[in-house]
Amino acid sequence: MSFLEVVRPGVQSTIQDSGRRGCRHHGLAAGGALDLISYTWANKLLDNPRNAACLEIVLGGFRAIAHGALQVALTGARTRVTVNGQTVESWQTLNLNDGDELTIDHSTHHRLVYLAVVGGLDAPEQFGSHSVVVREKLEGQGPVQAGDRLMPLQPKRQVPERKVPDHQRPDLDAETVIRLIPGYQYPQFQRADIIRLTTSRYTVGDQSDRMGFRLQGTPLSSPPPGIISEGIALGAVQIPGDGQPIVLLNDCQTIGGYPKPGVVPTVDCGLLAQQLPGASVRFELCDLATAQNQRRLFELHYQNTRWCQTGQELEWL
């Protein structure tokens, strides 16, 4: 039996997959990995199923001991990763031997690190998902604690050494531009406020977490009044009375009463979720078809490519 024994979970580490579907009418958040791209690449490196559960580590500070031979993959925020004190690269597969100590230092540039194991993590499932939404306190699902054992579903399966090509990794150091798809309440906003929203720079506020990111900058001067509470979803941009945008993320509530000029595509939500307080971001208008096509291509690439024998590139089937 092979597993990772958690010695130090860091600020917060939770098990996440791609989230639950069809449960919002029960008052349950979708949950799921915040950074879709990093999460998906971690599973792709190991030929895991698209929805395989992995570990989402906030701000690093994680340490674990391998018991038995184990193959893992690390993606996400740039930070120092060591095995037995020796620095190793992320965005690639990593073979751990019995007794190896894996350490992920605290991240100073971005927020999220993803740790996948071959076959996916064996974790409790509730309402069709392994994803942990901490505030919901579903039975058997909670933050990872020191002493927990992270068990792979298929510990004996092995893949060759692989590395995500540089050109296919997200550039987290580039300017953070989050696209905005106009919604049905868009016409209720003053034209001057829409221009202000899409030409101003905002900074990520301290009160930002898996529920949503509060952005700080030049406030909208005349946001529409509150509305009757209605269903909301991942990426919705709420404008409360202070005129400062809130971008809702995976653990957001299921209903809300603030007006919304539009929604941010899931891929862009992941880029935003990687940003630390004080980081600069800006909005850019986008049409629905463009965002949908990008997501389709992303999913097709996962399903219809395979690793070359060198493990350095992918080829289409």
Rank of each mutant, 00 (worst) to 15 (best):
V117F: 08
R169A: 08
Q275P: 00
Q216N: 09
T310L: 11
P219Y: 10
Q190P: 00
D171Y: 11
R296A: 08
L300P: 03
Q92R: 15
A53S: 09
H130Y: 12
D100W: 13
V237L: 10
G120M: 13
C54H: 10
G243Y: 08
V264W: 09
G205F: 07
V72E: 00
D173S: 14
T14E: 06
N51L: 13
Q16N: 10
V263T: 12
N95D: 12
P245G: 04
F298S: 03
L276S: 09
Q292E: 15
V6Q: 01
P245H: 07
E101D: 10
H110A: 13
D251I: 03
G76N: 05
Q141E: 04
L96S: 04
V133S: 02
L102S: 04
R306S: 14
V81P: 00
S90P: 05
Q86D: 10
E313P: 01
G205Y: 06
S222I: 05
F189R: 05
T103I: 10
Q92P: 02
E136M: 13
L102C: 08
Y114S: 07
E230D: 05
F213P: 00
Q12A: 07
F62W: 04
C308R: 15
L4M: 05
L297D: 14
W316G: 01
G85H: 13
P165A: 09
S200T: 14
G205D: 04
L4G: 01
I227C: 07
M211Y: 11
P182V: 12
D209G: 06
D47Y: 08
Y39V: 03
Y39C: 03
H167F: 14
Q274I: 06
Y186C: 11
Q312F: 13
I194S: 07
R162E: 02
A291K: 02
N48L: 11
A53P: 02
P261A: 06
Q86I: 13
N293Y: 09
T266W: 06
R111E: 01
A64V: 03
T103M: 10
A123N: 06
E125M: 13
I104R: 06
A69R: 12
V247F: 05
F62T: 00
